[in-house]
């Protein structure tokens, strides 16, 4: 018992260790896994986040006018596991430090992270294409002579055509290979 009395006295001198929340802001560590935040400027619409999300909290759906897609995270369904952040290839998803999830029943449909990501129009034929952020394009084409700035504006079909044309020009300018 005397052993513990020493600790008891020390703890008494230390004072209460509870936080004064809600009268004072509670300490939140920088790496806290709070509400999911998505940056629509980086999203490529690959959908890996919807595939790995354990609760089915993430939804991606094409808009009615087919001009883009909606990205939605339901905070009330989210498990805060950070899988979407981990597997996102372009780091468009992050977890904020915001852990304030208490809300009225009437507000439950507003507890979402909601974004509209518009499609681009192919600069050659006008078809809808999913956006490829310049940084990602630069990474993908880093070992190629292709100019990423022009290629990200083309749909897959026109990209193929452009490549064929370019390769053709290269072959015309170089001497024909010798026939065996």
């Amino acid at each position: 018992m005397p052993r513990f009395l020493k600790i008891l006295a020390r703890n008494l001198l230390k004072g209460p260790s509870t936080e004064a929340f809600p009268f004072k802001e509670a300490f939140t560590p920088p790496r806290y896994r709070g509400k999911v935040v998505m940056n629509p400027n980086l999203c490529v619409g690959c959908g890996i986040c919807t595939h790995v999300c354990p609760g089915g909290a993430i939804m991606m759906k094409e808009s009615e006018d087919q001009n883009g897609y909606y990205f939605m995270v339901w905070h009330n369904t989210c498990a805060f596991c950070g899988s979407c952040r981990h597997y996102c290839p372009v780091k468009a998803i992050s977890l904020s430090q915001d852990w304030h999830n208490a809300h009225y029943q009437s507000e439950k449909y507003r507890m979402v992270e909601h974004h509209f990501v518009p499609y681009l129009h192919c600069s050659s034929c006008g078809a809808h294409i999913r956006r490829l952020p310049p940084a990602l394009a630069a990474r993908i084409y880093s070992h190629s002579s292709v100019d990423p700035a022009t290629i990200i504006r083309l749909c897959p079909d026109c990209r193929q055509l452009a490549t064929a044309k370019r390769e053709g020009e290269v072959h015309e300018s170089s001497p024909a290979p010798q026939q065996p």
Binding site: P29, R31, R33, F80, C81, G82, S83, L95
Partner: peptide, 10 residues
């Protein structure tokens, strides 16, 4: 502090 949650470390 390290994992971002008190119980489920993920």
């Amino acid at each position: 502090y390290i994992f971002g949650n008190r119980m489920d470390l993920a």
